[in-house]
Design a protein around this nucleic acid. Structure first.
Length: 842
RNA sequence: GCCGAAGUGGCGGAACUGGCAGACGCGCUAGGCUCAGAACCUAGUGGGCUUAACGGCCCUUGUGGGUUCGAGUCCCACCUUCGGCACCA
């Protein structure tokens, strides 16, 4: 007799047996089974170790991978490390260690934790983006982008903190002050590398159509790309200056009563009149201290300053005042707008605030009592457009502008080119040198990798340059083509770079001559299922698609899209604590809960608490180790899936964990026995009657749930099945057998042990998924609810072979139904087979 | 502000195409087992009214309207919460 279910005593040994057998390594490319590439968004290995968000993400993909193996697929399920980036560098500064050492230590911790979860990774393919053998190919792909003219340098505004002498990430800026130290931060232009993702805007938009992604996620990408059709219109200022505005409503040009430039617009300085110069300068300076987000979010305050200059409306020669205002952004459109208060509410509000004229150019409906009218209608006050409706008027105006050389049709995108450089140490160096003659030159493939040099300090240089700029021996180099003096580019790439193509390297991680062998690439791409958080909806997922499309155009990959199907797991949310709103986050250990209220231990005052995404920066991460130690990995795997559907956000609360733990105990007791309970007798006879129905409907239901990724309900059906098994003595072996095959993806360790007890062959993890007989799903009787005028008035059980007419007659004969029908005329009657009888009476 | 998502018992959640709201689990209550407790087992468990009982009636899916024989599900308006907003990744 067994001692009962003791996860700690079985889990490690199964992990070792799987590994020794190579159970989860993908089979060679010539395997006959269909392939399935199940990919996770690989983690940034932070110093805090795995958190529950990872546990959810990787358990979902593990269940997908294990289920696919049991359904006969050759599965590729790899894991690696996205290890460049700001946090590692910050950690290195704070703790006086090299980021490389910090990363390798963190990777060891992560890997050990991942193994204790029993996730079925093919560890022979492990990669690390900070490994020179990896990042030489990141650099190699950058060179291809550069050759295609998709990489360029330009002056771009960044968050500059004078006191810290460094550029800050948006996350490090809070309310215009640096997160560390609270120093002022301003937007300041600096020379940066950019990638022309805008050149691929149309393809990125079109490519979404055939992807098996959640519709709302595709919609987010569409909105992010933000295609809009309209026209560029030229406005003249005086005799020799002009500026271009982009408008989606060229039909309203006669109603343009003023123009607004972004405060950063290059023309501002030259057109401002002396009388307005001080006011303009003050406004420009004030704007430099505001983030774009603030500027967009703030619609209540109408702020702006008149430049003193006037522009000429090209269509009617009207002189309209030119203002600057921070609601116009330099990064969208042309950084200049024509304001049409009659048809745009924001322009209307601005005109009212500053007493500027308003001319309606679209006639609103009779009953319209709003302000700006944005709907369609006949044009008015618009000369040759009068009477035309919006679409016709737009086309007519564009034709007119093009004929007169005053404008042209144009499509713009909200999407901006990708700011691709960072003034940091811990990133991929650019394979770029700057010659003394001023030329910027890409290095050849044979110069790769350009390795990161060791430096003494990762601290900011104070000049805004990367710490690499201080490594004289590395910066000074020669141009390999002629031996002349040159300096290395000292910016590094953003963390996104390494994660833009890692799914390709997993296919062929040791290849020395190519990022991936073409035949192998053809065999495995695209990724069949990609699992990760919805927070990556626009940035990572768009950047990776962009790189992939460039590689596709270069015929370096064979599929147009990298990720065919996408699964978003929801966020695991957890309370975070601060002394007050906008104060730095407190560690969970520094807060205690008294009578349901969080109290800051140090001060005794109530803490400011919000439920939000678990993240290192919010200090609200929960580490899974203590749960594994207490309940075992199988229980944690089951629980995290049982908490709700994969794509729903979940508030972490461990109080329900007992339920799934008991479920495993019960299964174990039934099959293996426990302390005072012997295992139930088993019979080799097939399941009959109710047992047969329970078995086959469980298989049917669970299989459907597996295909729909409804893991929470799949687990509840396993619980129901176990309940049915518990009532059987003897227990048909085929029922226990099917139960374990279906339990295996969720609780693989326990399932393996029970499978062994049952005498199953090999690993249950690789045993085929059970099948069901359609005829076993039928029942002898059917239950009906009887509705009269939409309310249930009775219940009925009939033979499953009954005809509709007989069911209707039986329903009407029910006393309470008859009572409700009395004195009324039956106007409608129908049977919803197996569910409901509908009667409508008047 | 813009884009996307979500609101169902004390709690997590279930409910395929509009068709018996609350599967499964937690918690709670009662009983069993036990010297006692833990664990375990059995039963019950949205609210109100009514019935000796079986049962019957009404209310209930964030709020307010609407469509329908019938709405958690569809439509309109609103409220709240969460995610993203380009240098966290």
């Amino acid at each position: 007799m067994s001692r009962g279910y003791e996860p700690q005593s079985i889990e490690t040994s199964w992990q070792e047996r799987w590994e020794a057998a190579g159970a989860f390594c993908a089979a060679p490319d010539d395997d006959e089974r269909p392939k399935k590439y199940v990919l996770d968004m690989f983690p940034y290995p932070s110093g805090d170790g795995l958190h529950l968000g990872h546990v959810e993400n990787y358990t979902i993909s593990d269940v997908l991978a294990r289920y696919a193996r049991q359904r006969g697929f050759n599965v590729l399920h790899p894991m690696g490390w996205d290890a460049f980036g700001l946090p590692a560098e910050q950690y290195a500064i704070d703790n006086q260690v090299h980021p490389r050492d910090a990363v390798s230590r963190n990777v060891e911790v992560f890997k050990a934790q991942m193994k204790t979860m029993g996730w079925s990774y093919d560890w022979s393919r492990e990669i690390n983006t900070t490994d020179p053998d990896y990042y030489q190919w990141t650099q190699w792909i950058f060179l291809r982008l550069y050759e295609k003219g998709l990489a360029y340098a330009a002056e771009v505004p960044v968050n500059w903190c004078e006191a810290l002498g460094t550029v800050l990430a948006n996350e490090e800026v809070i309310d215009g002050k640096s997160e560390r130290g609270g120093h002022p931060v301003v937007r300041k232009p600096m020379r940066q590398w950019l990638l022309k993702i805008t050149e691929y805007a149309e393809q990125l938009l079109a490519g979404l159509e055939d992807l098996d992604w959640p519709e709302h996620l595709k919609q987010m990408q569409r909105e992010w790309i933000g295609r809009s059709e309209g026209a560029d219109v030229e406005f003249r200022v005086g005799d020799d200056e002009t500026f271009t505005v982009f408008t989606t409503r060229p039909d309203t040009l006669y109603g343009a009563t003023f123009c607004v430039l972004a405060p950063e617009h290059p023309l501002v300085a030259s057109i401002t009149t002396p009388a307005q110069a001080d006011a303009i300068a003050a406004y420009v300076e004030k704007t430099a201290g505001r983030s774009e987000r603030e500027r967009m979010a703030d619609i209540k305050t109408k702020s702006g300053v008149f430049t003193g200059a006037y522009a000429t409306n090209p269509v009617n020669g009207a002189h309209v005042p030119i203002w600057i205002a921070d609601y116009v952004l330099l990064t969208y459109g042309t950084g200049a707008i024509m304001a049409v208060p009659g048809q745009d509410q924001r322009d209307w509000d601005f005109a009212k605030a500053f007493d500027l004229p308003i001319i309606r150019t679209v006639k609103p409906p009779e009953d319209f009592d709003g302000e700006a009218y944005t709907g369609s209608g006949p044009a008015m006050n618009s000369d040759f457009l009068d009477g035309m409706f919006v679409d016709e008027a737009k086309a007519a105006m564009i034709a007119h502008l093009e004929a007169e050389g005053q404008g042209r049709a144009r499509v713009t995108y909200r999407l901006r080119d990708w700011l691709f450089s960072r003034q940091r140490y811990w990133g991929e160096p650019f394979p770029i040198i700057h010659r003394e003659d001023g030329a910027t030159v890409p290095l050849g493939n044979d110069s790769l990798p350009v390795r990161l040099p060791d430096v003494k300090s990762y601290k900011p240089t104070g000049t805004g340059e990367s710490p690499l700029a201080a490594v004289e021996s590395w910066v000074q180099t020669t141009d390999p083509s002629d031996g002349s003096k040159a300096q290395r580019e000292t910016n590094t790439m953003p963390q996104w770079a390494g994660s833009c193509w890692y799914y390709l390297r997993f296919l062929d991680p040791l290849n020395k001559t190519a990022f991936c062998d073409p035949a192998t690439e053809k065999q495995w791409l695209p990724v069949d299922v990609y699992v990760g958080g919805v927070e990556h909806a626009v940035l990572h997922l768009l950047y990776a698609r962009f790189w992939h499309k460039v590689l596709f155009d270069l015929e370096l990959v064979s599929s147009a899209e990298p990720f065919q199907r996408l699964v978003n797991q929801g966020m695991i949310l957890c309370p975070s604590y601060r002394e007050a709103e906008n104060a730095p986050y407190l560690r969970i250990e520094d807060v205690e809960i008294r009578d349901g209220t969080p109290i800051v231990k140090a001060t005794g005052a109530p803490a400011y608490s919000v439920v939000e995404k678990m993240s290192k920066s919010k200090k609200n991460v929960v580490n899974p180790d203590t749960i594994i130690a207490e309940y075992g990995a199988d229980t944690l795997r089951l629980y995290i899936l049982f908490m709700g559907p994969p794509d729903a956000d979940k508030l972490w609360d461990r109080s329900g964990i007992q339920g799934v733990h008991r479920f495993l105990h019960k299964a174990w007791r039934l099959i293996c026995g426990a302390e005072r309970h012997a295992a139930v007798e088993r019979s080799d006879a097939p399941a009959e009657g109710d047992a047969r129905h329970a078995l086959h409907s469980a298989i049917a239901g669970i299989t459907a749930d597996m295909d729909a990724l409804a893991y929470n309900t799949a687990i509840s059906k396993l619980m129901v099945m176990l309940g049915a098994m518990g009532a059987l003595d003897p227990l048909p072996r085929e029922m226990a057998d099917a139960f374990l095959r279906m339990l295996a993806p969720f609780a693989p360790h326990a399932a393996e042990s029970m499978w062994e007890t049952l005498g199953g062959e090999g690993f249950v993890s690789l045993a085929p998924w059970p099948t069901y007989d359609e005829d076993a799903l039928q029942t002898a009787t059917e239950d009906y609810a009887v509705q009269v005028n939409g309310k249930v008035r009775g219940h009925l059980t009939v033979d499953a072979t009954s005809a509709d007419a007989d069911i209707l007659a039986a329903a009407q004969a029910l006393p309470n139904v008859a009572e409700n029908l009395a004195g009324k005329r039956l106007v409608k009657e129908m049977v919803v087979r197996g569910r409901l009888v509908v009667l409508v009476a008047k």
